[in-house]
Design a protein around this nucleic acid. Sequence first.
RNA 1: GCCGGGGUGACAGAGAGGCCAUGUGGCGGACUGCAGAUCCGCAGACAGGAGUUCAAAUCUCCUUCCCGGCUCCA
Length: 485
Amino acid sequence: MSLVLYNTLTKKKEPLQPIEDGKIGMYVCGVTVYDKSHLGHAKSAINFDLIVRYLRHRGYEVNHITNFTDVDDKIIQRAKELSMDPMALSQQIIDDYFRSMDALKAERATTYPRATETMDDIIDMVEGLVQKGIAYESNGSVYFSVRKAKEYGKLSGQTLDQTVAGARIDPSEDKRDPMDFAVWKAAKPGEVSWTSPWGEGRPGWHIECSAMCLKHIGKTVDIHGGGTDLIFPHHENEILQSEAYNDAQFVKYWMHNGMLTIDEEKMSKSQKNFFLIDEVLAKYSPQVVRFFILNANYRHPLEYDSSSLDDSQRALETLQNSYDEMKAHAAIADGDDDAERLCGDVWSDFETKMDDDFNSRDAIAVMYDFAREANKLRGEGRLSRKGADSVVGIFNQFNGLFGVLVSESRLKLVKEGAQALDETEIDKMLSQDHIPDGDVDRLVRARQDARERKDFATADNIRGSLAEKGVDIQDTQEGAVWKRK
RNA sequence: GCCGGGGUGACAGAGAGGCCAUGUGGCGGACUGCAGAUCCGCAGACAGGAGUUCAAAUCUCCUUCCCGGCUCCA
């Protein structure tokens, strides 16, 4: 079975065939660093994180490039508002971005080029476009002449005339055609700028991606990703520049992630309807946030509301419980091979789902079925320690890609049986702010003793008091287990 | 207006011609002193209208509503 992915360019799912066997050059548009990252950025990063992890799992060597737009109008404006140096501001935001994405357990890209570090390549490209006569200088700025492009709108389906009719374009008098876009912008007095053949200035928005793709990947990149909001004009213009400059196809597969929405509206800074990653992680674990995002198709919009993460937390608990219990499982039966068979089937099912355009939602559904089957074997006393280890192995493989489960063992099985404790000792232990593991064990055994004496008041008091300290006791067929929440 | 993508059970969200999606929640049952966890079962759906087909949530057409883009955006 081969992996297929949805290509925005052709609007079809296509088998993945990299230019070079086994290697993938992948460019994902990063962020403009003028303000802290919000949950929408997290969605994009986590969607592509899973894609990269899965491609690697499938044996591809992935060169993953994500850029930082660290000079542009917004950064300059924001820096001015804060009376900061724009470069200091962008560095601060980049630091925040890394902190947030690390906290979300998104793997880092291979390289994070910055516009300001790619200046020579950008200027080379602009010069090349001017030499080819497809871009022109005007008052210190350089514009790309869209009417000279061979093809226009092949990604977005837009035609030039329709777009002109849309008429929300900047009618700069420097442009020969209103649809032309800047590849180099002349600096206004006092702005940060770089020296170029056209005087002091800085890059247009789109050109950095074209230059970075060429520099870090090549004339043609296998996969180019970004949000759906970038399709037009950003990605369309990247195609125009790169293909004009390189005389080669720019991108084989375009992949776009759907927007995170709130009340059906895109989460964005300009709408002021965003939640910062910091804020969200103060209340929910990174696993819950990842699960919320990965439990939906990356291509489709995902609706967020106040209960979304609570729902995800509850839903995830089912998988986490099964995972925990499989790890803590004490062998009941020996030599059964039901678990082995179960594990053999589930992983190929899982990969089949993921091979179909990274269908993480269906892949998770496979995991739920798997957890139920494994729980059933265990409940029926047909699970050996070896079988449980195989089940845990599948969970680990799944988690290596999705990163939605807490891998540390949370569940503690109390090995010794019931043991009486006198009341004052119980109260003393329960009154501690933090009850050490050893004491929890003793309390659980004391509770067991109380239960055997049918002293349910004492038993329930121990369970209730421990629950208040964040320790959950559960009675199972194998005895009592507990975990810290 | 134009270009994309959508409208699926209480909710979140897969699926893209025939076969159970899945999860949370609800209801019933098993287990339990009670909880919880777990297991079993039940209910409940494909925006509306025409058409193609033996068969349509899935294909075609029309209507309608929503979202994204056409300005910076993941």
